[in-house]
Computed example of a mutant assay.
Amino acid sequence: MIRKPTPVDIFLLILVSLIWASTFLAIKVCVDEIGPTWLVAIRVLVGFLAILPWIAWRGLVLPKGGGQWALTLSVALLSIIVPFFLIAWAELTIDSGVTALLMGMGPFFAMLLSHLATEDDRMNLFKVLAVMCGFAGVLTVIGPSAVGGLGDHLLAHAAVLGASLCYSVVGVFVRRVQGIPPTRFSGLILGLSAALLVPYALATGQPDWQGLSAEAIVALVYLGVFPTALGYILRYHLIRTIGQSYFALGLNLIPIFGVSLGALVLDEPVSLSLFVALALVVTGLFFGQRGARQASPPKASTTAATP
């Protein structure tokens, strides 16, 4: 059963939002040098190795039964393999700030999906207004008046929105996986993903390892340790304790952090359209928070995962 967020929960939400916002910056630094396939494979492998000592100490916990294994594999596909590749591929052509802004659709997708798939995370008037603001923000970014060369970047925009939708869908599955603590569950899905991604990357050929810059190497290690290992531990912990909808609301900060980091570190342009989209997302966050406050007290869910 989910509970009311505490000050510690709110701090963790802000922390994971900042960590994940920096993901798009780190990807932009190294994706041109190593390519999306190897970037994702190395990121996942490093993330798994970062969690492995904890798993070795506490012991590996495996899913029980075919249904739980199917759910676990679905989480690995929808929270790691597919969205990681879509985001990395998209950033070959679009800025990290635009990517972060489009990923801000995740909370709004999550509110819709949680309403349809759970009993304790329902929509209300303010959440509906939040979703409308979110979609308006996306239209501001991908509209012809907002971003020049729409035909050149439409597939990249769609890839990012697809990754955002993956994260929203997987939040429903996470609460259905039972009996595995968050850290060990993170390690399990990272291990499964690495077992699939590394052989595939090897089959596609080798990148120019000696030609990698120091910045790209640091970015790859950072991606594995912080957004992947630490970020996913916090994600599953918060989803199971405060609910997917409230967790997703906190992640509305990602576009703000992401656009700011892209402009400050990579000198990416910040157009008027991005400011308008950010304003819409922040407004959506406000409405979503009001909706969360007005929601009825959560009922015990028969599908809630064991912390």
Rank of each mutant, 00 (worst) to 15 (best):
Y167T: 05
P144D: 06
G143H: 11
L154T: 09
V270Y: 07
V177R: 07
A229I: 02
C30N: 04
G205F: 04
I10Q: 13
R235Y: 13
I142P: 11
L238I: 11
T118F: 12
A304V: 09
F126I: 01
R240F: 09
L274S: 05
P298C: 12
I81Y: 00
H157F: 15
G59V: 05
W69D: 09
G191H: 13
L25Q: 01
L196G: 05
N124L: 11
L238Q: 12
S168P: 03
P307W: 10
S245M: 08
I256K: 08
W54V: 14
V131C: 05
M132P: 00
A50G: 06
Y222T: 06
V40K: 03
I80V: 14
L129K: 00
A159V: 08
G288N: 05
P255W: 08
S79W: 06
T306F: 11
R184N: 06
D121Q: 15
F85H: 13
C30Y: 05
S301Q: 14
W209Y: 03
L154I: 14
Y236N: 13
G171Q: 07
A110E: 12
T302D: 11
V160N: 02
F226S: 00
A305S: 15
L196T: 01
T23K: 02
K127C: 09
G179D: 12
L266Y: 07
Y222G: 03
A130L: 10
W89A: 12
V29R: 10
T99M: 06
L274H: 14
S114G: 15
V16I: 15
A117S: 11
A41M: 01
L155K: 11
L129P: 02
L190C: 10
L272W: 04
A117H: 08
A219K: 14
I51E: 12
G143E: 05
G288E: 04
F48W: 15
G250H: 12
P297E: 09
V177L: 15
S301K: 07
I19N: 12
V131L: 02
S186D: 03
D95L: 10
R3H: 13
A70S: 09
S186H: 04
R43H: 06
G288R: 08
K28R: 15
V31H: 00
L192R: 10
L52Y: 12
F185N: 02
G65R: 05
I94G: 04
V29I: 15
D152A: 14
F287W: 02
G66Q: 11
M123N: 10
T241D: 13
I242V: 14
A163W: 02
V138D: 07
A304E: 13
A229C: 04
Y236A: 06
N124P: 10
F275P: 00
P182K: 01
G104F: 03
A229T: 04
L197D: 06
S114V: 01
I94M: 01
A292M: 08
V40S: 10
F287G: 02
P297R: 09
M111A: 15
G104M: 06
G211S: 03
L92W: 00
L234T: 09
P182M: 05
A136G: 15
